[in-house]
């Protein structure tokens, strides 16, 4: 961290500050003051994030037997979890879904941001259109796409038929269903990521492009040598958000496929949701939660490193 707190550490000459707060803050010193500021957030984080994690961990290690109050501690839930083909299937699906969703959404968002960065009326209209799906509830989007994907009659087949294509069962073909969900997700999220790229682009000084142009650099070269490196922080940020999205959003699976056909669209969180709420196997669900939390942590540690590096870059 390059910066340190500076002036704020000097003694205050407060005027209208409530005396008690001032005195408390003064007595606490810099560390105490920081904790005081964090306190409101920490209270809610403890209640609704940390404590539930402890509960889930305990649940994952608790082995229950049907019809008996007695429980024991152990790794039995994890053994059962890894022996469950549905779990490994969901894990694999989620991987495909992540790669399949994140790469095109980000590429598309980036292309759209670069293409629409100039503030013309036309561009403003196009940005609005691309951003609209972000504003739609995922449940509602899924309800719409139920019709979009309807074989033969739905939006997609109706217009593809005018191009001479035949009927396709977008959600009912196990080889296609996951990719249909990928399509929905890209449609829903690309506009959101585009906004962050637009913000990042706005921060790049125009004279850099001028200089490059004078040196005779073409458009592609300018993009790879200036735009892309300077968008590093935005890219890292979007990557984190996108990673979180592919693991934590499953409303569309609930509405459209319920993980089918034959488990082809079963994603990790949906697996957890079903195991807990339909099979009441809270031990196995908790074990799966622990696994997915571990994956998320590992992923986010890596991407946060990149993020912090990007922020440094931006600050320098």
């Amino acid at each position: 961290m390059a910066q340190t707190a500076l002036a704020v550490d000097s003694p205050e000459h407060g005027t209208a500050a409530p005396r008690r707060v001032r005195r408390l803050a003064g007595r606490l010193g810099a560390d105490g003051r920081a904790w005081l500021l964090l306190l409101p957030s920490l209270v809610f984080l403890c209640l609704f994030t940390y404590w539930p994690i402890v509960q889930v961990l305990l649940q994952a290690l608790t082995i229950e037997t049907f019809g008996s109050q007695a429980t024991s501690l152990g790794l039995g839930n994890f053994d059962r979890l890894f022996a469950d083909a549905a779990f490994t299937g969901a894990l694999l699906n989620n991987l495909v879904y992540a790669v399949g969703t994140i790469a095109p959404s980000i590429a598309l968002a980036l292309a759209l941001a670069v293409g629409l960065q100039e503030a013309t009326r036309f561009n403003a209209l196009l940005r609005t259109v691309v951003f609209f799906p972000v504003l739609l509830p995922l449940v509602a989007a899924a309800a719409l796409f139920l019709f979009v994907f309807l074989p033969g009659i739905g939006l997609l087949d109706y217009y593809l038929a005018t191009l001479g294509a035949g009927q396709t069962n977008w959600l009912g073909d196990p080889d296609l269903a996951l990719w249909s969900l990928v399509g929905l997700t890209v449609w829903k999220n690309a506009g959101y990521y585009m906004l962050f790229f637009l913000a990042g682009l706005q921060a790049i000084p125009l004279d850099l492009y001028e200089a490059a142009r004078i040196e005779g650099a073409g458009a592609w070269r300018r993009f790879t040598r200036i735009t892309l490196p300077l968008l590093g922080p935005s890219l890292a940020f979007v990557l984190v958000i996108a990673l979180v999205n592919v693991i934590t959003q499953v409303d569309h699976v609930v509405v459209l496929t319920e993980g089918g056909p034959s488990g082809a669209t079963d994603l990790l969180l949906f697996y957890i949701y079903q195991t807990a709420h339909e099979s009441y196997d809270y031990g196995k669900a908790a074990a799966a939660t622990v696994v997915s939390v571990a994956i998320l942590l590992a992923l986010s540690l890596v991407s946060l490193r990149t993020l912090e590096r990007g922020v440094h870059y931006e600050a320098s």
Binding site: L45, Y50, I53, T248, L296, L304
Partner: peptide
């Protein structure tokens, strides 16, 4: 980093507790 944990752990995961 403790704060950032909450980015990932949305209520659907922790719905029962």
């Amino acid at each position: 980093y403790g704060f950032l944990l909450q980015l990932m752990l949305v209520p659907p995961i922790l719905i029962v507790p």
